[in-house]
């Protein structure tokens, strides 16, 4: 049933992203055709933020409609387990996150190639690495994998936090102002989680005014993130399976 529900989730979310990707593709083509470099950075910064904001809005609205709206009566009477429900929600949103990044990078690459061929792409790569180092990451080859794992896990943690607050306010503990309570709960839980994580996470080393992660720190971060994900997943599962009240 997981694959069936995933297919349903894909179709129900693909329209929004299809339109967005089409818009970005048209923007890319117009930038290439008009051959004007100046607006590129501004346009693509806007496109990137539009993509990111739409992704976040879609994620929240998917969970919100799935639990708050009449659609909840459909989703929670389908013969799928709570595990399948949660896993499908997370997987489909991670898929769209990766797709959004791929579309953005592909379009940016196409513009840079059209501007100055492969040389421009090489410069962009050097610029990207430089910026990453400035941001404080030591991009040693063996750490790249942990960096990306940690990055995706942060997104999964965000998704589960959204599902947790949506599920939590649909229990007997919250009778009124459910949407407001969901927002408040989101910030409260985020604050608590971030405080705990900041207390137990490895501390960065200050080098030339920038925090640099030490060897092994990313590995520890990944472990802490996995623990946070497990707590959020178990709590959401409990609420959906034993306390849920769809009105």
């Amino acid at each position: 049933m997981l694959m069936t529900f995933l297919k349903h989730e894909f179709f129900s979310t693909s329209r929004k992203f299809g339109i967005l990707y089409l818009g970005i593709a048209l923007l890319t083509i117009s930038v290439i055709v008009f051959d004007d470099f100046e607006p590129i950075v501004a346009t693509f910064t806007l496109a990137f933020f539009a993509c990111f904001v739409l992704l976040i809005i879609t994620i929240i609205s998917t969970f919100e409609k799935s639990i708050f709206g009449p659609q909840a009566q459909l989703d929670f009477t389908l013969p799928i387990s709570t595990h399948d429900y949660l896993i499908a929600k997370v997987l489909i949103n991670v898929f769209w996150l990766l797709c959004s990044i791929a579309v953005f990078v592909a379009c940016l690459g196409a513009i840079l190639y059209a501007q100055n061929g492969l040389a421009m792409l090489g410069e962009f790569y050097q610029f990207f690495v430089y910026e990453m180092q400035n941001a404080g990451f030591v991009l040693r080859t063996e750490h790249w994998i942990f960096f990306y794992i940690s990055w995706i896990l942060s997104f999964v943690q965000f998704l589960l936090l959204i599902s947790f607050v949506c599920a939590a306010v649909h229990t007997r503990y919250f009778r009124r102002n459910k949407k407001v309570m969901a927002v408040v709960l989101y910030f409260v839980v985020s604050f608590v989680f971030n405080t705990i994580i900041s207390l137990i996470s490895p501390t960065g080393v200050l080098v030339n005014g920038m925090y640099v992660l030490r060897n092994g720190d990313l590995v520890v971060s990944v472990i802490i993130q996995l623990c946070a994900i497990a707590v959020l997943y178990a709590s959401t599962y409990y609420f959906l399976n034993y306390e849920l009240e769809i009105e």
């Binding site: 909840a72 009566q73 013969p79």
Partner: peptide, 19 residues
């Protein structure tokens, strides 16, 4: 999950997405 497979439920309001 077992009972959801054998129960056909019609709610009192529309429950499909408009699109």
């Amino acid at each position: 999950l077992h009972t959801k497979r054998i129960v056909s439920y019609l709610p009192d309001s529309p429950y499909f997405a408009d699109w």
